[in-house]
Design a binder for these strands. Structure first.
Lengths: 227, 227
DNA sequence: TCGTGTGAAGACGTTCACAGCT
DNA sequence: AGCTGTGAACGTCTTCACACGA
């Protein structure tokens, strides 16, 4: 059994495999081969098998993997991530959309509170989560021991709000600001920069009919800036 | 001069450097050292210098890089990405927020049209872009030779709409669906899965106080599924 | 025979450490 | 002295290719 540490990239892919497997559970198939699952997940079959060895040996040679068993095994690794409370700061355009987004809940996260500099102005349509003034954030975060935050404030306030979050005890931030947040090294930041992601697509496309790079492709992964 | 191909990861970081530089242009400084810029971008100075060698030699030993010169050089590489028309499909909750998002425009992209299965139901507040029925998408995309698309439809329609986009001539898709799109290999897909990104943050946080992985960290990059 | 599990090789990316220019 | 540019070392990730079990 691989008591080795699991590489970050593998963890990322495990999440993807898990998604694919859950979709297969509905179907009749009770086993799946590495090549079938790999195709669904968009990776190389050998890579999939390699990734799974971090969980131990599950497959049956000549047959494949038990969908149920595999799903459970991956969930055991990833499971700890779920059912965690999250706060959201910045309920503006994007933030409000995130509050309405059901995907977080589907993955087992609960957004327990939202904060905004102008809570009165927030478009609350379709939002069931209470929106408080950002001034109340530190107290509420501390009281409820929330460790995760979604940061969707305007870029010019991102760093200062991030500081407040860290001071309040937040340990992980999913940021949507197009800036590199400076945080203590014990705090995890994952930055999703929408325009930058679009730019990357564009560059890859251009490369097809112009004389540009070879662009080896890789799945997104978390980023962690220096302290 | 490095006429080598530029690695995808370097391209990604070049975008980040470019952002940081533009912010510095306002400031008085006309030169910047690799360590200063690296700190702002959250990377190792050696890595920054290595990345920049793909553009040629710009720095002045003992001094640093000319902010202006560097900005121009990077823009020349990335520039082709900008000023491209983009269409958005799926103007629901998230899609509508993306239509209001100014970041794309700031980076030089123009969302020329949006499409939805039920264009009447779209909340148009704050949206200046016309929203058409998705049935009109193929024709408009072809007519205007649009090559980039933002895909923000519900997950169950993602693959089928992606197929339509590809058939209409789209060559790059920025997808927000939590699924792996199957597209021809000449089409670039970059997938931003919000719940998955939050899950990654969570896993990294957990690892701090529990016995979980070592998690080597990396910046996000594009993903490209198999044909 | 089919498909897993894995050693070994290879590709890739990062970082060190220092020579050399200003 | 300060900082770039880069050979070389290192570490990590991916992929091949095949032995082995069902």
């Amino acid at each position: 059994m691989g008591k080795d540490k699991i590489p970050g990239k593998t963890i990322y892919r495990l999440s993807i495999y898990h998604r694919c497997l859950r979709r297969l559970e509905d179907a009749e198939k009770s086993t799946i081969s590495s090549s079938a699952l790999a195709k669904a997940a968009g990776v190389n079959p050998a890579q999939l098998r390699r990734d799974l060895t971090y969980l131990g040996t599950f497959g049956t040679r000549g047959l494949g993997y038990s969908v149920l068993e595999l799903t459970t095994a991956i969930a055991e690794i990833l499971g700890r991530a779920h059912l965690q409370p999250v706060v959201l700061v910045g309920a503006g355009n994007l933030g409000a959309a995130l509050l309405r987004y059901e995907g977080f809940h589907k993955e087992g996260f609960e957004v327990v509170a939202a904060f905004d500099a102008a809570p009165d102005k927030v478009a609350r349509r379709g939002i069931s989560i209470p929106v408080f003034d950002v001034k109340e954030m530190p107290e509420m975060v501390k009281k409820q021991s929330v460790r995760l935050a979604i940061l969707s404030v305007p870029v010019e306030h991102a760093q200062s709000v991030a500081n407040d979050l860290v001071n309040a005890g937040i340990q992980g931030i999913l940021s949507f600001s197009p800036t590199v947040l400076q945080v203590p090294k014990e705090v995890t930041v994952n930055s999703v920069d929408l325009a930058l992601e679009l730019e990357q697509v564009s560059l890859f496309v251009k490369s097809a009919d112009q004389a540009v790079p070879d662009l080896r492709l890789e799945p997104p992964l978390s980023e962690k800036p220096s302290p």
